[in-house]
């Protein structure tokens, strides 16, 4: 996964006022007790909507995220990396499959979700709108973007919706392997020849600020509502996940002799928090709304893949019209 900094709809309190208040209270009590909500359980409309939105964004992030790394599979240097990267990207597509089926349990089909992705109605992690110019970029993604994703996923696996939590638990096991693969690949570059080191440093320079943005806007600006936290849809705030990631990975990046392109970056020993130069949040908004370096390309690739595969999907339905080719897994 990916999928930090989910974009939630503004919560409309009208929607809540509509709900059966008794059921709503029981629902909240269940969540307080740490129970999981299952597909056929009663849930508020707003909960369903926000969950679909979140799981769908996560699933889209997996398949779109497979693209920048995927283009490096055919160029991966040597057997070990080639096999490792193929396995990793395969996992990511598998994550998408799991997540789409988790979202389907809430009543939206995979086709509808993919249509919304292609039309731009639903989003995916903003970081994949940046290009992977070199092998080192793909190594950065494998290690550090995945690391950011893991911070999110581990938190979200403690959420309230059963199918999503179970999907995340499976995903987290695979992510541990991605982290190892990515760390290994970055280490070899960072401790390699001068040319390799330069390649890795340049990738780090390119990805640093998109990486900080990965976790979403600062808490003081992000409109995530208290109700999403109360319902355990969102577990950690954007700043909390960003801090966790900084705390775990900045020392590891420094350890490799790489330079993080921010003079102000340091841990405030008193507060225990990392201080850093804020990324350009206006750019973040611009990119999310479609105006980034790779938005068009990413969607164009997906659209072409969908179009090229259309005859295949139709042909299967002609063979077995009664059989849906999508089987929910969660």
């Amino acid at each position: 996964m990916y999928g930090g900094g989910y974009l939630f709809e503004k919560t409309s309190l009208d929607l809540l006022a509509d709900e059966d208040q008794e059921k709503l209270a029981e629902f909240e009590a269940r969540i307080d007790r740490g129970e999981k909500i299952e597909p056929h359980d009663w849930m508020p409309k707003l909960y369903r909507r926000q969950l679909i939105r979140m799981i769908e964004q996560h699933a889209h992030s997996e398949i779109i995220g497979a693209l920048p790394e995927g283009t490096w599979i055919t160029r991966a240097p040597g057997f070990k990396r080639k096999l490792g990267l193929m396995a990793k990207v395969q996992d990511e597509v598998g994550h998408a499959q799991l997540l789409y089926s988790a979202a389907e349990t809430l009543g939206k089909s995979r086709e509808e979700m993919i249509d919304d992705l292609l039309s731009g109605r639903s989003k995916y992690s903003n970081i994949f709108n940046y290009p992977a110019y070199t092998w080192a970029d793909s190594c950065f993604i494998s290690w550090l973007v995945d690391a950011g994703a893991i911070v999110n996923q581990v938190a979200n696996s403690k959420g309230s919706y059963g199918p999503y939590c179970r999907a995340l638990e499976r995903i987290c096991i695979e992510e541990a392997f991605h982290l190892k693969f990515g760390h290994h690949a970055v280490t070899w570059l960072a401790t390699g020849t001068p040319k390799q080191k330069k390649m890795m440093q340049e990738a780090l320079n390119r990805w640093w600020y998109p990486m900080l943005q990965f976790f979403g806007p600062p808490d003081k600006e992000s409109a995530h509502s208290e109700v999403l936290m109360r319902w355990k849809v969102k577990i950690l705030s954007n700043d909390e996940t960003r801090q966790q990631w900084l705390d775990m990975y900045v020392p590891k990046i420094w350890e490799l002799g790489l330079t993080i392109p921010d003079d102000k970056l340091k841990k405030n020993e008193e507060t225990g928090k990392w201080e850093y130069t804020e990324p350009d949040w206006d750019e973040f908004v611009k990119v999310i709304n479609g105006d980034g370096p790779c938005n068009k390309e990413r969607l164009a690739v997906r659209k072409t893949a969908e179009k090229r595969g259309e005859w295949v999907r139709k042909a299967i339905l002609a063979t077995s019209p009664s059989k849906e080719y999508v089987t929910p897994l969660a």
Binding site: A66, A87, Q90, V93, A305, R308, E310
Partner: peptide, 17 residues
């Protein structure tokens, strides 16, 4: 491996990978 990410179904991306 060139099919990874581009197959007609997610299941085929995975199978070819």
């Amino acid at each position: 491996s060139e099919w990874i990410g581009l197959g007609p179904l997610l299941e085929e991306d995975i199978a070819f990978a």
